[in-house]
Simulated scan of single mutants.
Amino acid sequence: MNPHATIATIKRILLQLRADHRTVGLIVGVPTLLLTLLYFVYNGSAVFDRLALTMLGILPMLVMFLVTSVAMLRERTTGTLERLLTTPLHRADLLLGYGIAFAVAALAQSLVIVAVAHWLLGVDTAGPLAWVLLVAICAATVGVATGLLASAFARTEFQAVQFMPLVIGPQVFLCGLLAPRDGMPELLRWLSDALPMTYAVKALQAIGRQSDPTTDVMQNAGVLLAFTVVALGLAAGSMPRRTR
């Protein structure tokens, strides 16, 4: 790996993001708008507080998966990736640069959505708000890494979008948002344990219940980071130079 190539990739992606106002709006604005819509659906009731807290882990993962899978596929379909890989730039440098650049975007996204949830929509937690921000960022980076991995198997941007219900849908059903995991059949609990969104929801639920959720948050955040590293490694090994 070449640190200079990675840094150059980070700068290039961040400059592209800054110039693409629609993508910035998707990353930062859409999760906030969806959370606000949920607030009015439940009229600010106690149910909203419970759902909104878990959505702070789900929405960033969903949006970042969509954005990164399409962005990387666009690099391939336009021939940009093929040209880049004729230089000393390694796949690992490219994907690490993508991951870090979109992690910066995820930080901005998480700051906005957590601030809106707490100060405008009144979502309260027993634990510190900083832990909520950490989990939201970790969940978003998982979305980045899995989006990069999914893009390796898509040939068009439409196919990249089609991966979203396949990758994200089961996680939403099994993460504990819609029904307690303890009441699920054993097979579904095992499957839930293999999905990253489960750990984001577990961490956020611990923050909502405990005044000092440090142990639970660190354990689940560590699992999320492990998912990120594994997904980036698999993406680096499977990423083709271009899509024909």
Rank of each mutant, 00 (worst) to 15 (best):
I168Q: 10
D212A: 13
V30H: 08
Y42A: 04
L166D: 06
R155A: 00
H21L: 13
A92E: 14
L204D: 14
L111Q: 03
L204H: 11
V201W: 10
T54P: 05
E186Y: 08
H4F: 09
V24I: 13
L15A: 08
N2F: 12
T68G: 14
T141R: 08
L107P: 04
T23S: 01
V41N: 13
R244D: 15
F65P: 02
A160P: 00
L111P: 05
S45Q: 14
L17I: 06
R76Y: 01
G233I: 09
R50F: 15
G233Y: 15
W131D: 11
A5I: 09
L177D: 07
R22S: 13
T80M: 13
P240V: 05
P196H: 02
Q219C: 08
R74Q: 00
I207P: 14
V41Q: 15
F173S: 04
A145G: 11
L121C: 13
L195E: 05
V142N: 11
T146P: 06
L17M: 13
Q219T: 12
E157L: 00
R74K: 00
L56K: 12
T198D: 02
Q219N: 08
A152R: 07
T36A: 15
T146S: 04
T32K: 02
V30W: 08
T80E: 12
S151G: 01
T86D: 08
L121P: 11
L187M: 08
A108Q: 04
A231W: 00
A236R: 09
D93L: 07
R83V: 07
Q162E: 09
